[in-house]
Design a protein around this nucleic acid. Structure first.
Lengths: 327, 327
DNA sequence: CTTCAGTGTGTAACCGGTTACATATAATAT
DNA sequence: ATATTATATGTAACCGGTTACACACTGAAG
């Protein structure tokens, strides 16, 4: 392995000059620069990032902390983070937290020892001290941590309004809202949007709390449909729940979309694979991940960040679980 | 930050003794050991992994190279790798290669500079030199790289036999096999299994090559169904293709499973969300990832590995896209 | 002709560990 | 009693970089 010393010798300068040249810091004369360039080229020198880290107490590692990569929402996020990180020369460490604060804290501690550059975090531990006091750049994704930490999120409330209206415009008069867990910020925002859209309307509605879990959602919807067969529209706070609802409709012989219309929220790929295809409020998950990563890198590189809250617009994707709108 | 020197001073010994004690290498007297333990405790000393890496040219980083985390097959794998890695004190770096050899090579080079401990690789670049000559522990997942590199894989061939028989036992007489891309080892094994199971049978069959892609699969199946309406069974080499087939059946008004039965391969979570639920040959993806990681870590820690090929059994999961078996 | 800021470069300390080597003592073998 | 081995520890070099500091030179300002 060739080191900076080899380069220095070959170029006939000191290691300090080579280092300065490589880091574009301090003064380096034109001749020295040329000699170093040539030596680097000839020896195929590549800087040792570990040695650098030890000095600078910095690295190009980014930690991505998420509850569970297995949840269909996250892979796309991870993909975006990795893509953007790569173009900026950063490397992504994957951390499944299972929403467990101990695990999160552990990751943070472990990676800080490696001089991790920063974290992108998706967590429900809203105001956990290990984030607030982490003393390392952080960007929160999809869920607010605290005011000092930049957040990127979907426009959940507006999305919920859009989704609700989609159902109403298509003739639903008795809507079941599948509300996500109260600990989740986005779930609350979606709930607010739903309420805002439906409240001054003559439509009936009911709200049921429902985890973002397929089988549970299915069960909950089956019961709701049994209790009130006149439900003609379901707005689920997540696509997984919507899939559960669709399955419930299928097992109970409710025809979708003729007897029952369903709208999901998320826009995961699975939605189009269902039959009928799932109408949903699609988040631009990739974009969220990409923005989060760029904002994080700006923070890391001490560049000014213009805002501390980024809201990514959401889009209604009409597929087969809703009818064409009545004029 | 407290360093090994602080500990040495506090314990009244030299840094060498502290290091030896911490690494359990060389001799350390009982008194010294006690003093060091106390000092570590009192100062809350934690070893700096970067400094250690610089010396030892080792790290506890594991690279996970996969085509695209967005592909529903991989998140579960990643999850398993991360889980196991964590219990052994390793950290996982996520690498989306897009099957691009340049990107793969790049990751390997970049991470080797960080003294990465090893790689888990899922790649189609079967005999790529950057793997064969990587000079770092590697375990291949799901796809064979070369003979020297341990591989863990599903029992694809046997699984395909099971899937085919499931269709035949349930009365299919004209089976369409959706064959995966020829570059993929598992696709070939599944094809072999299908052929073996169907060949000495009086059932008709046809084989169509079909990428592991939903919309493409749907289109291909729609055409096949149009060309030959007597097809009464489809065995897809992947669940995503099976989902496409199911969708095709739905758009063409073929009732599943009465007129057409479908079996997939993979066992991804999406399968149960479809209506009807997808009958599939399920791989134990988590187990594959877990085994791969353990084998890799054994390699890293220079422990003997008993075999170089691990085959994880596959399981037939019967759901709604197949009928109950005729007696 | 000083003085001083800007430019260019090298020496050596330092980041926080590991480890080869030297040295010393106690235990065992011959 | 002496040689040999196992145990125990410290000193200092080293891993491969960064950077504070000292020093030298140049050109412009006063």
């Amino acid at each position: 392995m060739t080191t900076i010393k080899d380069v220095a010798k070959k170029a006939g300068v000191s290691v300090a000059t080579v280092s300065r040249f490589l880091n574009d810091s301090g003064y380096v004369g034109a001749e020295a620069a040329k000699a170093v360039t040539a030596a680097v080229e000839e020896l195929k020198y590549e800087l040792n990032p570990v040695a650098r880290s030890l000095n600078t107490k910095k690295s190009n590692l980014i930690g991505l902390i998420l509850p569970d990569i297995t949840n269909p929402f996250f892979p796309e996020l991870a993909r975006a983070v990795e893509d953007v990180a790569l173009t900026y020369g950063y490397t992504v460490v994957l951390c499944n937290s299972d929403e467990n604060p101990e695990k999160e804290k552990n990751y943070i501690e472990t990676l800080k020892k490696k001089y991790i550059a920063g974290f992108i975090v998706t967590s429900n531990q809203l105001d956990a001290p290990h984030y607030a006091n982490a003393n390392v750049p952080i960007v929160a994704l999809d869920r607010t941590i605290n005011e000092k930490i930049p957040t990127v999120s979907s426009n959940n409330k507006e999305g919920a309004v859009m989704g609700t209206n989609a159902l109403l415009e298509r003739g639903c008069r008795n809507v079941l809202f599948l509300r996500g867990p109260a600990e989740l910020n986005p779930a609350n925002d979606r709930y607010d949007g739903f309420m805002e859209a439906i409240q001054n309307t003559d439509a009936h509605y009911q709200v049921v709390t429902c985890p973002f879990h397929f089988a549970d959602s299915q069960k909950i919807v089956e019961r709701a449909l049994k209790d009130d067969p006149s439900i003609d529209g379901i707005f689920a706070s997540s696509d997984v729940s919507a899939a559960g609802a669709l399955k419930a409709a299928s097992t109970m012989g409710k025809h979708v979309p003729d007897e029952l219309q369903i709208v999901g929220f998320d826009g995961v790929a699975m939605g189009e694979m269902l039959s009928p295809g799932l109408t949903t409020v699609a988040q631009d998950v990739y974009k969220m991940g990409a923005i989060a990563t760029r904002v994080l890198i700006k923070q890391i590189e001490n560049k000014k960040i213009d805002q501390s809250f980024y809201e990514v617009p959401v889009k209604l994707v009409i597929r087969g679980t809703t009818r064409s709108v009545a004029e």
